[in-house]
Amino acid sequence: MATLEINDLHARVAEEDGERILRGVDLTVESGDIHALMGPNGSGKSTLAKVIAGHPAYEVTGGEVLLHLDEEDVADIDAELDDEDYHWELLELEPNERAALGIFLGFQYPAEIEGVTMTNFLRQALNAKADEREELFEDEDEESAEADDDEGYETSPMEGPADDGEIGVAEFQEILSEKMELLDMDEKFMQRYLNAGFSGGEKKQNEVLQAAMLEPAVAVLDEIDSGLDIDRLQDVSKGINALRDEQGTGVLQITHYQRILDYVEPDHVHVMLDGEVVKSGGAELAEKLEDKGYDWVREDAFETA
C-alpha cells in the first residue's frame, strides 16, 4: 500500500519572474483509490501533474511531495531495507527515479518518438525501471561493487552489452498481449513507432497501456478523456479501472468533464482553483460541478477564507 502525500506545494515557471502557479497544494492519494481532480482552465491541474513527475520547466518554491511505501511495494527488492527505503521525498529525485519508485504520468499530449517501436520502447522502459529500482534500494557497499562491474562489456561490440537477466522476450510478449487485449488494442500497435501518427484516441489508449505495463503505485492521468469518442472512452475507462482493481494502483485523474466519471467512478473528488485544492468530497461533488459550474466553489472558498 503506497501513499502519495503532497503538502503545501508551491511551484512557478522555471524562468526569471516565472509565473507562480501552485500556491499551497495539499493532496493525498493512496494506492487502490481513484481521485478525480477538477477545476477550470488555468487552475494549475496540469502543472501539479508535471511537478509530481519532475518536469524541469517548473521550479518548486516550497512544500513537499512524499511517497510512502510498504513491504508489498518492495517485494521485488532483495537488498536489506531500512526505514529510509520506505519514505521518499520525490522532489529530490530525477524523473526516471520517481518513475522507478512507482509514479506514472499519463500525458495530455504524449510525445511522438519516430523510429522507436512500441515493443522496443516498452521493453527498455521496463528494464530501465527494474535497474533503477535496484540502484535506489541497494546498500551503499553494493553500489560501489556494482559500479566496478559495469565497466567494459563481456561480449564484442557487435553483440552489444551482455544481457544482465533482464525481462525475457517471451515473458514480455505474454504480459503485453494480455494488457492490450484488455484495452482492446490491435497487436499491430506493437510494431508502430511510439505515438507517431497515432490518433488522439490511440495516444490516450497507449498512455493507459503504458501504465498497465509499468504497474505504478500512483498514476496521475492528465485529461486522459479529452479527444475520445464514446467507444474509446469505454476502453480507456476499462483500462483505468483495471489499474486499480488488478494492480492496486492509486489513480489521480485530472478531468474537465463528468463524462468519464460515469465509467470510472471516483472515490474522491477535488476541486482546484488558483493553484490550490479548495474543495474535496465524494462522487456527488463532480455531479454538482457538472450542473452548477465552478462559481459556487469560488464563492464558498472566498467565504471560508
Binding site: 530525477e94 524523473p95 518513475a99 518518438i113 519516430e114 522507436v116 527498455q124 522502459a125 525501471k129 533503477e132
Partner: peptide
Amino acid sequence: FYLQSRGLDDDDAKQMIVSGF
C-alpha cells in the same frame, strides 16, 4: 521528459531519440 517519466535516464532517453532518428 516523456521518456524519463517512463523510467529512462537522461542519457538513455537521448540515445533512444537519436536511434529512432
